[in-house]
Amino acid sequence: MNSQPLMLLRLTTSPTEEVGATPHGTLSIFPVTGGSFEGERLRGKVLAGGGDWVTGKADETLELDLRVTLETDDGALIYMTFTGLRDDAHHYFRTLPRFETAASKYAFLNRLLAVGIGEIRTEGPVHIIEEIL
């Protein structure tokens, strides 16, 4: 499978909201307070208000469910979601981002699937996102 770089996404988060043990696992919500994204075709900032709903499962892996709004440097809004899997025991942190936008300049995002490689840094999560060609 071929891919090409789409963006580097940096998120900042506020303290986790620990919902606790639910029927599906242990739910932690990571509120997103901001961030930035940068790629050849788009760049801008992450708006506050999104989050990552993270469910810890019985096999020690984390199921990710993120929603954020991106604002490009020319004013377009892009709704981004991903589901993903984080397995710290195997150093595996992969996501499947999807995008929705009404801005014609960025409509290519509506038509692509992507994969992300995530990493937790001291300043917050960083995701290297590539378009699946």
């Binding site: 892996t61 993903g84 899997l85 397995d87 499947l96 692509l112 699937l113 994969v115 699946i132």
Partner: peptide
Amino acid sequence: YYFRTTPRFQTAHPAYGFLNRLVAVAS
């Protein structure tokens, strides 16, 4: 044409537990 998917798997069978812990892409 573009025809791409992103499969995920769930199983209770230990021999295939690795499938619970991976993300896949397909053409």
